[in-house]
Write a protein that binds this DNA or RNA. Structure first.
Lengths: 105, 105
DNA sequence: CTTATTGTTCGATATATGTCGAACTATAAA
DNA sequence: TTTATAGTTCGACATATATCGAACAATAAG
């Protein structure tokens, strides 16, 4: 694991912190599993809103979902784009790749 | 990322939480970079104590290091073994592999 | 323009966490 | 047995966080 010396501990700690909350991790995994990396995320094929759908899926109020989305976006794990009333979300494949390499021997 | 559906969010969130503290992440990376996976960890070739060495390296008191070691061990990221007065630490390669797969597309 | 829908921001609150120093335990050395 | 070294546990404190509901903002529909 020689690459461990090259990472910024503060930055990576922030990323792991973003994944340390169960609901936030579920949001991340939902987004990761429902979309092709690099493309816009949808929970079903009807192109529904991310924040609302995620809240309904996880049974948490939208203000909490919005807060979690903001945090995931802040550390770079996901990206967002407005489409009408809805905010579409998807995972950033580059950061996911960096995380996979972090755990590579 | 089809494997995202199979993980336990609570368990993985705990693991990420263990890595979410900068000092704890530094301990993990020090252990990961200084030892061959599966073997006993040493910071230098003199087989010195892990807790004391880590504390000196990171400039934090031993009670804090001990607390962090306990947390890393609780979630399975590291393993420990007593050797005389010293507690030797090393990373668990299986869990590191699982984390790498978690971020695999 | 008015109403409905979607998402954000704010304030409050309860809970968790990181850190330290002091006291204690365990092992080794003299 | 006494002393030294290494690590753990405990109590305390300050700080951060997760969550909710209410109020607000933006966009769409009528």
């Amino acid at each position: 694991m020689s690459n461990y010396k090259t990472i910024d501990p503060e930055e990576f700690a922030e990323i792991f912190k973003a994944l340390s909350n169960p609901n936030r991790l579920k949001i991340f995994t939902l987004l990761a599993s429902c979309c092709i990396p690099g493309t816009v995320s949808v929970l079903d094929s009807d192109d529904t809103a991310c924040v609302g759908d995620l809240g309904r899926e996880l049974d948490i109020v939208k203000s909490t979902v919005s807060h979690h989305i903001k945090e995931l976006r802040r550390v770079g794990l996901i990206r967002t784009r407005r489409d009408g009333q809805k905010i579409l979300c998807w995972v950033d494949p580059d950061l996911v790749n960096a995380l996979r390499e972090f755990f590579a021997f």
